[in-house]
Simulated scan of single mutants.
Amino acid sequence: MNTPQIPYQGIWPALLTPLTADLAIDIPSFARHACSLIDAGCTGVTPFGTTGEGPSFSVAERIAAVDGLIAGGVPAGRILVSTSCAALPDAVELTRHATQAGAFGSLLLPPFFLKGVSDQGVIDAYRWVIDQVADPRLRIVLYHIPQVSGVPLSHHVIETLKTLYPKTIIGIKDSSGQREGSLAFAKAFMPPLQVWVGNEPDLQVMAARGSVGAVSGVANVLPHLLQRLVGQFDGPDAARDLQRVKDFIGILGGYGVTAAFKGIMAILTQDPGWRRVRPPLVALTDAEYQHLVAQMNAFALDPSKD
């Protein structure tokens, strides 16, 4: 914790979730991947978000995997656990476990099955989780990804929760991909909250406004580059770094994003098991994978710089 105004900073990769042949979580590989990212300079890791297929796993699976990360060498205080679930009791159980395990905090969507709910309904849902956990150590990053969840976070919702729980609500992860909306969040709430964006091409713009970190899927593969986009947003390589990110995202855009990320991990690690995804996602076909190999060869990833 750096200052009261900046409760967290740096790059937190939105962890990909490796699977075994029977599509269970491969916890040893999960921990190794997380440790490698922290060794590469990332502040922490975020398991079970959108990139990590979080809603596809049960409460028991997610608890066991977080415990496995810690047992595998990931410091608990460097884990920001996505505890989002459609059912509030499940969100409470995951959030309570993360807090009691000593995790840095919880990344939390509003309940996302029912659509068209009112601001008051969203507020009530967050209050229910926070009040049920009832732990002064609890820290929550609000997760805004309306194109996926179907339930947006309005300024009114955020302001109300921030006022009710000033020591609990510490930030907003805005993965809407709408730069103007991200800047509006920053203007309204930063500081004391931090606003992180999930759209990596916006990291430099947000860093110039005072954002000091990101939960990023791209950081699974390009951790050094993402750190520079935030920490050296006006540095001599800023334009090159931004273009590099755009080129990488362009590769991902030709496939299902999570399947493509996992295909790239299979290429980098020479472990074909990384290609597995849990339904309803579909893994890359062999033809798609070979095309991705060619694209990544052309991209010429440099692990020491990217």
Rank of each mutant, 00 (worst) to 15 (best):
Q5K: 13
P4C: 08
R209I: 01
D39A: 15
Q194C: 06
I130A: 00
T95L: 04
A101K: 11
P166E: 08
F48M: 00
G256K: 02
L23W: 01
R137A: 15
T258L: 13
L94M: 13
D135A: 02
I267K: 00
A207V: 07
L284W: 09
Q120L: 12
D202H: 15
E200Y: 08
R78E: 13
G121K: 05
A31V: 08
D286N: 09
G41M: 08
H144G: 01
E93W: 00
P13W: 02
P280F: 07
A300C: 06
F112S: 10
Q243N: 13
V293K: 12
D22R: 08
G256A: 13
A259Q: 09
T285H: 03
G44T: 03
A64H: 06
D90R: 01
K305N: 12
Q232V: 04
T99P: 00
G77P: 01
D286W: 02
A103S: 14
V277I: 09
R209M: 15
Q132A: 15
P191Y: 08
S149H: 05
V212E: 13
Y165N: 01
W274D: 02
D119M: 09
E180F: 07
R139L: 02
I6K: 07
L114C: 11
H33F: 10
L138G: 03
V197R: 01
A40S: 15
V212M: 12
Q9R: 11
A260V: 01
P28D: 09
P111T: 03
A101C: 05
E288D: 13
D306V: 04
E200K: 03
A287Q: 13
T99D: 05
R137Y: 06
G217L: 06
G121V: 11
A300G: 06
L109Q: 07
L37H: 06
Q194G: 09
T285Q: 02
L23M: 06
F248H: 07
I130S: 00
F261E: 08
A188I: 10
V151M: 05
Q290E: 15
P146Q: 12
I172H: 10
A21K: 14
L284P: 02
D174T: 07
S304T: 14
K187C: 01
T20S: 10
D271H: 10
